[in-house]
Amino acid sequence: MTKTTENIKSDVLTQDQKRTKERSAKSVKASRKTSLSTKVSKNMILLGLLLFAFVILYPLFWMVVSSLKSYDEIYNNVWGLPSVWHFENYATAWSMGISGYFINSLWVTLATIFLVVIIGSMAAFTLSRYKSRWIDVALIFTIGGIMMNPQVALIPLFEMLTWMDLINTHWALILTYVAYRLPLTIILIRAFFLSIPRELEESAIIDGCSEFGIYARIYLPLSVPIIVTTIVLTAYFAWNEFMFATVFIDSDMLKTIPSGLMNFRDALRTDWGVLLAGMVIATIPMVVLLIFLQRYLVRGLSEGSVKG
């Protein structure tokens, strides 16, 4: 269910900054009297929150711990820690195929990001700087794209890509990913471009910059935050996309991580430890992204947040 919902992912983690500003004001008020009953209910709620955090974290923790176990131990000792820590599961997973999927995912993700950023920012440039009936139509055309879902296009896309001779190549994924990422990207970047003061470009024109110069030398450098945001959102999408990756790519050597893991499971039979190790490897880049790039997301999005 993530696809459409994911459009709004953009809003996520927004406004952290505002929050910190408000925090000082808040804390003054927080010291106001807290009665006994609120203290009790506070602790109850806190317990609930922690319990929920536990429900979220425990399966992931189990995944990591079990990835270091042997099949027998996963089967017979569900809760315990491994008696022997099978770190080699990771090496096995890596050499048995995950490395290939990983590299494929990396290439598809990077190529998608590159194209989305270039093509999207160029379109946003036009859409933010010019006004005409045609531009309005183009804008509606673009925004409308956000409402289209890949499920409905699956069979025609399969036909089309087969006809173009692109089926079972990475381009089948890259091109469709780019298409489905463009609407949101354009909307985000356009909103940012709109906020760039006109005076800057006027002085640039006087300096003899061309349209392209204005785009490349003024708009792009100023928009680094929103572009990082776009990169993070696109990376998230391209790294995790499952349906196209399953339908458009058959060859094991070309599969990306999400669909490759399915093959990996079938190929491994009962080597569950290795499978779990592969799952952990597939997860790491995104969790790293969340932890380290959260700030970029917040900064970029506080300006250009959109709905739907």
Partner: peptide
Amino acid sequence: RNRMIPALFILPSLLFLGIFIYIPLVQN
């Protein structure tokens, strides 16, 4: 130039959206 460039800038996006999003919809 002023007319051409904005069009060229937006053309790739429109192509992508047209080919991979709108045509499949109609095709379906």
